[in-house]
């Protein structure tokens, strides 16, 4: 970067720009909701904001948050990825199988698992772009098949005995912060830079905003779409590794319904289901809000059944807000 001049007028202008851009931030709502919900639970039960609970929430956040980030890429292009929960389960047991039964070293097993995620994403992407299959159907197939593969691989039993390095990913902390939480923060920073600071990221938004306009403007829309499915499945594979590391066993029955949590976090964070709209900041806070609500309700001893209802209600608010926003922009255009 070139050296910046520090004339007072320029500095004032920039400060003014910061203030307006803060007020125009669409994610203010979800950020505010996180603050309010967090404060409310912390007041209701001091254990909520305790170090131990924050650490548990950090690990949960890494799981939901990574899935939400990945799914957001797909939703931004106007697609959907329903497979992520099952891909978490499959890659969880796959990494354990590679590590325990195939005898691959910990790191190699993890890398191979991530590459498997890449491959699943490529299959999704090709099916959607070149075969023209609807994203919903394509990823629904994987939702069913990947879960089946996870069960078949393990015959329904957990795979025990993963290596020490593997297990340590979820157990070690850096200055009190669990490694998975740090990974999530890192992923957010990378996703932010990719989506909002690179030309390829902008093209991803353009494909979701109007794919025909994007194509005619010289954007290779198919490649961009394939890329987003790869990101989503790879995130899911990473979460699978984290889950196995946390449980220290490969469990085929984990992550049932997580795809819905991930999509919910994305939509709550302002990712529009019609594509082309939404930012990483919102997704991160959408995931934080979900984790806060889940953890808070557990601490307050609310039955898990009611937790589902609360989650549904939050999602309903987010979807209605999204719809209203879309309708407002349609009105402005007419």
């Amino acid at each position: 970067m070139t050296a910046t001049r520090t004339e007072p007028a320029l500095a004032a202008k920039r400060a003014d720009g910061l203030a307006t851009s803060f007020l125009q931030t669409k994610e203010l709502g979800v950020v505010g909701a996180v603050v309010v919900v967090f404060a409310a639970f912390a007041l209701a039960n001091p254990n909520f904001a305790s170090g131990a609970n924050l650490q548990t929430m950090g690990v949960d956040l890494a799981q939901y948050g990574l899935l939400a980030l990945g799914v957001s890429f797909v939703i931004i292009t106007g697609g959907i990825d329903l497979s992520v929960g099952s891909v978490v389960a499959l890659s969880g047991v796959w990494s354990a199988w590679l590590n325990v039964h195939a005898g691959l070293p910990d790191v190699v097993a993890i890398v191979v698992t991530l590459l498997t995620g890449v491959a699943i994403g490529l299959v999704h992407g090709f099916a959607v772009t070149f075969l023209g299959l609807p994203p919903f159907v394509t990823t629904l197939v994987t939702l069913v098949a990947a879960r089946g593969a996870a069960l078949a691989l393990t015959q329904g039993f957990p795979i025990d005995g993963i290596g020490e390095t593997f297990g340590s990913i979820a157990q070690y902390r850096l200055a009190g912060v669990p490694i998975p939480a740090l990974l999530f923060v890192g992923a957010c920073v990378i996703a932010f830079f990719f989506l909002e600071r690179t030309h390829v990221g902008r093209q991803v938004y353009a494909v979701g905003g109007n794919s025909e306009a994007a194509r005619l403007a010289g954007i290779r829309t198919r490649r961009r779409i394939i890329l987003t499915y790869v990101v989503s499945s790879t995130c899911a594979a990473a979460v699978g590794v984290l889950v196995t590391a946390r449980l220290t066993v490969g469990q085929p029955g984990v992550a049932v319904g997580w795809e819905l949590n991930a999509i919910a976090a994305a939509v709550i964070g302002g990712i529009s289901l019609s594509g082309g709209v939404g930012r990483v900041l919102g997704v991160a806070f959408g995931a934080i809000l979900l984790v806060c609500i889940n953890s808070g309700l557990v601490i307050l001893h609310v039955s898990p059944y009611y937790q589902q209802i609360v989650l549904g209600a939050v999602l309903a608010v987010a979807i209605v807000t999204d719809r209203l926003r879309a309708r407002r922009s349609e009105r402005l255009q007419s």
């Binding site: 353009a206 109007n210 025909e212 082309g276 255009q333």
Partner: peptide, 9 residues
């Protein structure tokens, strides 16, 4: 509208 613009952008 359909081939040229990203209307929401």
């Amino acid at each position: 509208k359909h081939q040229g613009l990203l209307l929401d952008a």
